[in-house]
Computed example of a mutant assay.
Amino acid sequence: MHIFTTGVTNVFNMFNCPSTSNGKVVELAQAFAATLSKDQLRDLNQDFSLKNAVNWSNYPQAALGRRGHCGLRIGTLSKEQWTALNALLAAATGSFKSKGYDEIQQILNADDYLRDHGGGRDYGRENFYVAFLGTPSDSGTWVLQFGGHHLAVTNTYAGGVLVGATPSFRGIEPFTTFEYNGVSDQPQQQNQKAFVALLASFDNDQLAVAKLLGKYRDLLLGPGSDWEFPTIPVGIRGPELRGNQRALLLAVIETYVGSIDKENAARILAGYENELDSTYVGYSGSTSMSKPRDYIRIDGPSVWIEFSMRNGIIFSDPHPHAVWRDKNTDYGGTAS
């Protein structure tokens, strides 16, 4: 078993900016755990190891068997336990509209929708999992994991500070707006629109520079591809973008960084903004980001974001997969 040690101290120094929300997360994690039975706690509490941290997937978890997510299956939760878990997720993932907690709820709705419209029992929110890797505290290091089909939340805390919010995976099917329990859902259209606006601002010369060679069927750094960042960045670089285009690029990044609480999101986004001169944008396929194999990525000294349109599984229309990673702080900053 590989214990998380290497890198955590350096990352803590980089992110040593206390946030009141971080302390609230610990409090709510402990409150959620207090509602659980002994058997549920056994599933929830996992060793703080890279082996456990990388054990996530964007596939329906019920179809993966033992290869699926570690942790507590949330289909076992009572109403009281669901309430406590939702309070924890809301504190850890923030209150931006169609991002963070709100997006998680819409992704859960989408999986229920798939279950009810031909997907069967492998789909549905009951097949998502929550895990604590290590013990939630204001002094130690631990990871909050939550995920399942089309979703992965990986928040690492050290000394009461969020030291990593990635890998963060988002996907959704259907990609058209759908209604579930009287709620209109489709959070990731905002991400697509932000990418399309950025590409629409490029002139022909810029598009030529940004165009990637080859075609992309899916993400390069999805589940199981940890720390496999390309060594040579390609595409159009920050200094080749005009002022309004740099703002559009930052707006795209914000749609992913906004999946955590406001204080930490502002801090991380400011760091990425300082690195825009060394950040590249590359795309493949069409600029509409609406067809299968349409693909775009942002590759900076720290930030890595990919958006890929995939063929439909339950429905015929294509749907997106996306991942936000950080080259320094994935899993709290350790690769071993």
Rank of each mutant, 00 (worst) to 15 (best):
G171P: 14
I172W: 08
E173F: 02
E173A: 06
P174W: 06
P174E: 02
T176M: 01
T176W: 01
T176V: 01
T177I: 01
F178R: 00
E179N: 08
E179D: 02
G182A: 07
S184V: 04
D185E: 14
Q186W: 14
Q186L: 15
P187E: 14
P187W: 02
Q188S: 09
Q189E: 14
Q190C: 10
Q190H: 06
N191P: 05
Q192T: 11
K193I: 09
A194V: 14
A194F: 09
V196I: 11
V196K: 10
A197T: 11
A197Q: 13
L198Y: 03
L199I: 02
A200Q: 13
A200C: 14
S201K: 11
S201N: 15
S201L: 11
F202G: 05
F202Q: 07
D203N: 15
D203A: 03
D203K: 07
D205Q: 06
Q206H: 02
L207D: 02
L207I: 10
A210Y: 00
L212W: 02
G214A: 12
G214H: 12
K215I: 14
K215F: 15
Y216V: 14
L219F: 10
L219S: 07
L220R: 08
L220W: 01
L221C: 08
L221T: 13
G222W: 01
G222M: 08
P223N: 08
S225Q: 09
S225L: 03
S225N: 08
S225R: 05
S225P: 04
D226Y: 09
W227H: 07
E228H: 12
E228Q: 11
F229M: 06
F229C: 05
F229Y: 10
T231M: 02
P233M: 03
V234L: 01
R237C: 03
G238V: 08
P239R: 13
P239I: 12
P239C: 13
R242F: 07
R242K: 09
G243L: 08
G243M: 11
G243D: 05
N244C: 00
L248W: 08
L248G: 11
V252G: 05
I253P: 01
E254H: 13
E254Y: 12
T255M: 07
Y256F: 03
Y256S: 00
V257I: 13
S259R: 15
I260F: 01
I260S: 02
D261Q: 05
D261L: 01
K262D: 11
K262H: 06
K262F: 02
K262Q: 02
N264H: 09
A265T: 04
A265E: 04
A265H: 03
A266I: 10
R267F: 09
I268D: 06
I268N: 05
L269A: 00
G271Y: 02
G271K: 13
Y272Q: 03
E273W: 00
E273M: 11
N274M: 12
N274C: 12
E275C: 07
L276F: 08
L276C: 10
L276G: 06
L276A: 12
D277C: 12
S278A: 11
Y280H: 07
V281H: 08
Y283E: 13
S284K: 15
S284Q: 14
G285H: 09
G285S: 12
G285C: 09
S286H: 14
T287Q: 09
S288E: 12
S288N: 07
M289V: 09
M289K: 06
S290E: 04
S290P: 10
K291D: 15
P292T: 10
P292V: 10
P292C: 13
R293Q: 15
D294P: 14
D294R: 15
